[in-house]
Design a protein around this nucleic acid. Structure first.
Lengths: 217, 217
DNA sequence: TGTACATCAGTGAACGCGCGTTCACTGATGTAC
DNA sequence: TGTACATCAGTGAACGCGCGTTCACTGATGTAC
């Protein structure tokens, strides 16, 4: 087993970050759960910040690569519909499938992803946002470019806001998924999965994307 | 000036909580900003938790009361439309107006509100969620009851999820509003306000609410 | 083959810091006799 | 009216704790001569 210490730390961190967020998870919790010495985190990752980056890089790399590939496959495909809403669902489906594929190995990954975005937008100076944009922005810009083709005519600014409204659906649902799934099971005795939520969200996001622009913008 | 210390603490806390969240704001920051002794928070509010509760109670009380009143006025009104989407916008408009009214005295209030909901759903045990539900749940349940009338036919469980998808739009937009407004100004030289965002969101939420239920739920 | 040295994963204990909280205290105002 | 006591807002300094980080150290493996 080659350096399983590193993997055990990453796995434990992923689970704790997903459940309690970055700041509210201590290195002591992580290292205890990983059955690893406290100092091992700083030894392997330099700092807590380094660990967070390692955790997020582990899925953001594959995710953006997958998204890139699948999007260009989509763009080259010929059987496109004239129905914008239908096409939006397909496009959002590409994103969803990329997410699901990345989340296959570890179901905490999407919650961490959502928390990351939430954190990035929660601080107005936004060093994290800048870093993410610089490192992984290209794939998402590509996605946005395709998305926009099937949305109502609007200015760049209008699209900027609309896109973030859509992002809100995804981010809130994913970062609250643990709580929502627990409530759902208690209240409706229904055992749903993250995949089902993702499938459930697609038509909602597609409708939201196509909502008309009203009034005095 | 009767006990302006308390008000100064509440105001400073509101602003800091809105900008940096509850856990990442220290009492030292708040008391410094309020030009008040560090111990004053514990003297007047018992603990940091007590302060957070006082800050949130200050607007959740008025907000839920206002919502209650305006909703029953709405329910008694006669000029209802047959257009569900139109009616949804009106209903969401009632919520938006209540929020705006409460936020009039202090524009940080909505961001704090959003952060509160985010926090409540971010921890799966959810003591905070239970407390909010017990204290203020009635008004929001009333709102949900009316909302549902104009949404597609669905089971309680389906409505539960759909409602939280809508909530995601609102909560993400509001809790990220500071960052989003800053980006918007930098990128598009456009000076928007919270009120505009709220107005902008309504049709998006209405469309999302009406999205059809697809596939194998 | 044997020896000296280098490298590296991992460890135990401590360090310094910022945090929420506590406590003894002050000084002003109100109240009882 | 004067005096003794109670109440209460507010304060300065310290306390204890959990945190991320550091440091000297171990023990195993590889490498050079």
């Amino acid at each position: 087993m080659t350096s399983s210490t590193i993997d055990r730390i990453l796995d434990a961190a992923e689970a704790e970050f997903a459940a309690h967020g970055f700041v509210e998870t201590s290195l002591r919790t992580i290292t205890t759960k990983a059955k690893v010495n406290l100092a091992a985190v700083n030894y392997h990752f330099g700092s807590k910040k380094g660990l967070i980056q390692a955790v997020t890089d582990r899925f953001l790399g594959p995710l953006t690569h997958l998204l890139q590939v699948q999007l260009s496959a989509y763009e080259k495909s010929t059987n496109k519909s004239d129905d914008n809403e239908q096409e939006l669902r397909v496009l959002l489906g590409v994103l969803a499938r990329s997410c699901q594929q990345v989340a296959q190995q570890n179901h905490h990954r999407l919650a961490v992803f959502a928390r990351l975005i939430n954190t990035a937008y929660s601080q107005s100076q936004g060093h994290l946002r800048k870093h993410l944009n610089h490192q992984y922005g290209a794939s998402f810009l590509y996605f946005m470019k395709l998305l926009r083709k099937h949305m109502p005519v609007m200015t760049n600014e209008q699209f900027f806001w609309r896109f973030h409204y859509l992002l809100g659906i995804l981010v809130f649902s994913l970062s609250s998924s643990e709580a929502l799934l627990a409530i759902c099971e208690r209240e409706y005795a229904s055992n749903r999965s993250l995949d089902q939520i993702m499938a459930d969200i697609l038509p909602v996001m597609a409708s939201a994307a196509q909502a008309p622009i009203l009034g005095d913008f």
